[in-house]
Write a protein that binds this DNA or RNA. Structure first.
Length: 235
DNA sequence: CTGGGGAGGGGGCCC
DNA sequence: AGGGCCCCCTCCCCA
């Protein structure tokens, strides 16, 4: 059974997610003279439905629904500002653009509105149809969907995994292969993570320390157990 | 109860 | 875009 309840918690803030690809098309796209069509695809890729017909996403991928599929309301006024680098002529060439909060006769208006109101929504643009998770990129979502479809199947026992390397690790449980050995005691492990955890046992000062009693633990789970057992309960 | 090993999952990065 | 790999994390189980 997949441990779908496992959710990444950014406890280690040193390793931050890469948000570079979350940039709105505003800053990047137009400065490189991207075509309007590409701009529309960019908005679509960011999960923003448009009133122009675009090729649909794969059936198992759905942009998050913050934006209705039908955007026919044209009653709102133009929200555009005056900072747009595009000329008035350019603006006149553009079809009407809309989003759930209104419609825009210029795309600079739409972009400005997006900057003000929609960036938070576009950061997570792709939702999983199997669960409630949302992802900022199609690739991340596809990766996640593998945890539902489990395409990597062990030929020996039939157990299925989301990724090939997980299957490889599992196959080692059949073959007994243990390619990772401890330099201190030569004990071998099939999994690098488990070797890393084992290495902590050789250390006098372990990685995870109780803030109250300064006792150290080789694993976060052991520290949590320690905390839950009462040492660090606020008295 | 505690510590440790085994197994597996997630996202990010690089190629 | 996808695969491989990395690191981190978690749960289960056992001594």
């Amino acid at each position: 059974m997949p441990r779908s309840f496992l959710v990444k918690k950014h406890i280690n803030s040193a390793k931050k997610p890469n948000y570079s690809e979350l940039e709105s098309p505003t800053g990047k796209v137009f400065k490189v003279e991207r075509t309007f069509t590409n701009f529309l695809f960019g908005l679509r890729d960011a999960g923003l439905p448009l009133s122009l017909p675009l090729s649909p996403l794969p059936s198992d991928l759905s942009p998050i629904s913050g934006y209705p599929s039908s955007l026919s309301d044209t009653s709102s006024k133009d929200h555009s500002g005056s900072e747009s680098p595009r000329s008035d002529e350019d603006e006149q060439m553009l079809p009407k653009l809309t989003d759930p909060h209104g419609s825009y006769s210029t795309y600079s208006g739409l972009l400005k509105h997006k900057q003000l109101h929609c960036d938070a929504q576009t950061r997570k643009s792709f939702s999983c149809k199997y669960c409630e998770k949302e992802y900022v990129s199609l690739g991340a979502l596809k990766m996640h969907i593998r945890t539902h479809t489990l395409p990597c199947v062990c030929k020996i026992c039939g157990k299925a995994f989301s990724r090939p390397w997980l299957l490889q690790g599992h196959i080692r449980t059949h073959t007994g292969e243990k390619p990772f050995s401890c330099p201190h005691c030569n004990r071998a492990f099939a999994d690098r993570s488990n070797l890393r955890a084992h290495l902590q046992t050789h250390s006098d000062v372990k990685k995870y320390q109780c803030k109250n009693c300064s006792k150290t633990f080789s694993r976060m789970s052991l520290l949590h157990k320690h905390e839950e057992s009462g040492c660090c309960v606020a008295h």
